[in-house]
């Protein structure tokens, strides 16, 4: 980890610092501020805009406060948290979040890997096929969700049921009968290209000569894949899973547009349920407490994930 910091540090040591080394503390301190100065605006901005509101979230989470009942605001300690843990809808939403994130990451990773392998070989129209395959990721998520809800999943006029009619499934109302599956399908469509792009970059960074050497040595394609390609791809797969999960766990657009968390709360995930409590129920205290619980959960998962991303970067830059 320290190697990344030291390598540029050595080359960045300016002549000024070298001259004043060990003689003048003031020069050293000024040098320190010269280094820190450019960093400060971004750092201060990020702290104010992202950390300060979270402190307020912590503060609000200890209060009973409903925006539609003015004057109801009072300090209630951890009562909101107890309510959150007793709330079965919250647990359902947490479970849905796991299903949506896990399902979507896994499926799009597998399809993405298959597509990356297919694209990593020359064939006619490869550039065009690649361009077509990344397009779903570039479509505005709200627009994509709107399309899947209407022109794709509409029970009467949608393409999905038109295609499924010959096998007798043409009458399914996907969004009310299988809301989670419908959301996952729309999300997989959107995120598979993301996985594919990252994994394809990994495949193309393979050392071609070692692949050819393996072939000369008589290794079959499966064997080459397992003993050379897969180990090389490990960090690309890890990175894709991590980054995909960061984005997909926050999914809001698709649920808002496609099902509004329904029927009932069947397809609400945590972001959507907290949104409902805050902006439809106006329950600031409860929503804040849920937010805090989600953050704690995320920190636990993210700490593990961050260690991973740092290993990737250190390997890359060293």
């Amino acid at each position: 980890m320290t190697t990344t910091a030291q390598a540029p540090a050595a080359r960045g040591a300016s002549p000024a610092a070298a001259r004043g080394a060990g003689t003048d503390n003031k020069v050293k301190r000024r040098e320190g501020w010269n280094r820190r100065g450019p960093l400060l605006p971004a750092l201060v901005f990020a702290i104010i805009v992202t950390q300060l509101p979270f402190l307020f979230t912590l503060y609000y989470s200890l209060q009973s406060w409903n925006l539609v009942r003015p004057g109801s605001r009072q300090f209630v300690g951890f009562a909101n948290y107890i309510e959150v843990f007793k709330d079965s809808v919250f647990r359902g939403a947490a479970l849905n979040t796991i299903w949506i994130t896990g399902g979507c990451v896994l499926i799009s990773l597998l399809i993405g890997l298959a597509l990356a392998l297919l694209l990593d070989r020359p064939f006619p129209g490869r550039g065009l096929a690649r361009t077509m395959l990344i397009t779903p990721f570039l479509v505005m998520p709200v627009a994509g969700a709107l399309l899947w809800k209407t022109t794709m999943f509409d029970p009467t006029f949608g393409i999905v049921n038109f295609v499924l009619t010959p096998i007798g499934l043409g009458d399914t109302d996907w969004l009310s009968s299988y809301p989670l599956a419908a959301i996952i399908i729309a999300l997989v469509w959107q995120w598979t290209p993301f996985m594919m792009l990252l994994l394809l970059a990994g495949l193309q960074s393979q050392d071609r000569s070692s692949l050819e050497a393996a072939a000369v040595d008589g290794a079959g394609p499966m064997q080459t894949f397992r003993s050379i390609t897969l180990p090389h791809m490990r960090r690309y797969i890890e990175l894709s899973v991590l980054l995909g999960a960061i984005y997909i766990v926050n999914t809001f657009d698709h649920i808002y547009m496609m099902t509004s968390g329904g029927p009932g709360t069947a397809s609400a995930n945590l972001p959507f349920y907290i949104y409902q409590r805050a902006f439809l129920g106006f329950d600031v205290g409860q929503a804040a407490a849920m937010g805090v619980v989600v953050v704690v959960g995320t920190i636990i998962v993210a700490t593990l994930a961050l260690r991973l991303i740092f290993t990737s970067f250190t390997e890359e830059t060293s």
Binding site: T2, T4, P53, I274, A278, V294, V295, L306
Partner: peptide
């Protein structure tokens, strides 16, 4: 990168961690 400050890793860690915090946690305040 060019003239790294001390604790470069910590600062990078901080920046990326703000990206991992769920947006719902700050929307209310």
């Amino acid at each position: 990168s060019i003239r790294p400050v001390k604790k470069t890793q910590d600062v990078l860690f901080f920046f990326i961690s703000t990206k991992m915090l769920p947006l719902v946690a700050v929307i209310v305040p």
